[in-house]
Simulated scan of single mutants.
Amino acid sequence: MPSFDVSSVGFLVLDILGRPVTRIPDGGRADYIDEIRMTVAGTAGATGMDCAILGLKTRMVSCVGEDELGDFLLAKMQGYGMETSMVRRDGRAQTSATILPVRPNGERPALHVPGSAALFSLEEADYAAALDADIVHIGGTGLLKAFDGEPTLAFIKAAKAAGRTTTFDLIQANPETVELVKPLLPYIDYFIPSIEEAEEMSGRKGAEDVARFFKDHGVKNAILTLGGAGVYVDPATGDPFRLPAYDIDVVDTTGCGDSFSAGIIVGLSKGWELRECARFASAVAAKVALGLGSDGKLASFEDTIDAMKNWSTKEVA
């Protein structure tokens, strides 16, 4: 029996966020804003962190630099109860980091240093420990230069051979990214990209057509996040369905997709039907969007269940 509920593998980054930012001041002058935070982030990092906040036993598998940014990430993850023995330290690059000036409407342009994420990879000798979980989440394809392509394919094949459930998300996808992703698709049980990334990769428009593209290429369950429009799910069995987003006042959209993946993983770990997983994941993302950073106002499983049951949703278009 695996030791962990989830192993979160791949892209880990330190986010430095400030809000609200409406402009970059002229010259060397300063503007005053309400809040600045540093957070654990990334398509694997934030998802793993949110899984831990929601009560899952979580192993993080990634890479950071030998610097104070890496010290911060390790301390924060350990503070959330995450197991970090497979977060390798590599002095060849600084820890991956992003500066995010968050606009008043919650949008966040990014200034990013790829850093240590580009050095992350796994040897076959690492597989047993990295796969010591019921669910294996891979996040960050496209920014994991040493791991993208054949290394990721070998690892996800090993995950399926070991009987693991696989979930998958990526970041900053474009039409070129699909060539990295296509070989992986038959081994992905739950594919959870944003609609924008999925459209870029597939060259198609509209959730129904995009989801069908990925299912035709082997994905078992296609789950497309639609931002304020909710989520579209084309499951392995049964009819596709949509769920609306929760009706909230958005503070920051950073990490909402990562937290949605965490919600799906938590639901799967509890044996829920996929519709209930998606409802819960939408509540997780809403909790994150209420605050600054990848954890936002996410507090606990029980608090999120209460929101799922009692918060109003938007009207379905």
Score class of each variant (00 low, 15 high):
Ala198Val: 06
Glu199Met: 09
Glu199Cys: 10
Glu199Asp: 06
Met201Phe: 03
Met201Ala: 04
Met201Leu: 12
Ser202Asn: 09
Ser202Cys: 02
Gly203Ile: 11
Arg204Asp: 05
Gly206Lys: 07
Gly206Arg: 07
Gly206Leu: 01
Ala207Leu: 01
Glu208Val: 12
Glu208Asp: 14
Asp209Lys: 13
Val210Tyr: 01
Val210Glu: 03
Ala211Gln: 06
Arg212Phe: 01
Phe213His: 10
Phe214Val: 08
Phe214Arg: 05
Asp216Tyr: 07
Asp216Asn: 11
Asp216Leu: 08
Val219Lys: 00
Val219Thr: 12
Val219Gln: 05
Lys220Leu: 05
Ala222Pro: 07
Leu224Ile: 11
Leu226Cys: 10
Val233Phe: 10
Val233His: 01
Val233Gly: 03
Pro235Ser: 08
Pro235Gln: 09
Thr237Glu: 15
Gly238Val: 06
Gly238His: 11
Gly238Ile: 11
Pro240Thr: 05
Phe241Arg: 09
Arg242Pro: 00
Ala245Gly: 11
Ile248Leu: 09
Asp249Ser: 14
Asp252Lys: 05
Asp252Ile: 08
Thr253Gln: 10
Gly255Thr: 08
Gly255Leu: 04
Gly255Phe: 02
Asp258Lys: 03
Ser261Trp: 00
Ala262Leu: 07
Gly263Leu: 06
Gly263Thr: 09
Ile265Val: 14
Ile265Ser: 01
Val266Asn: 03
Gly267Glu: 06
Gly267Ile: 04
Lys270Gln: 14
Lys270Glu: 14
Lys270Leu: 12
Gly271Met: 07
Glu273Ala: 13
Glu273Val: 11
Leu274Thr: 12
Leu274Met: 12
Cys277Asp: 04
Ala278Cys: 15
Ala278Phe: 04
Ala278Asn: 01
Arg279Met: 11
Phe280Pro: 03
Phe280Ser: 06
Ser282Asn: 15
Ser282Cys: 13
Ala285Phe: 03
Ala285Cys: 04
Ala285Arg: 02
Ala286Met: 07
Lys287His: 12
Lys287Val: 00
Val288Gly: 03
Ala289Thr: 10
Ala289Leu: 11
Leu290Lys: 12
Gly291Leu: 11
Gly291Cys: 06
Asp295Ile: 02
Lys297Gly: 01
Phe301Trp: 13
Phe301Thr: 04
Glu302Thr: 10
Glu302Pro: 04
Glu302Gly: 13
Asp303Phe: 00
Thr304Met: 07
Thr304Glu: 02
Ile305Lys: 13
Ile305Val: 15
Asp306His: 14
Asp306Val: 06
Ala307Val: 14
Asn310Val: 08
Trp311Ser: 11
Ser312His: 15
Ser312Arg: 15
Ser312Gly: 05
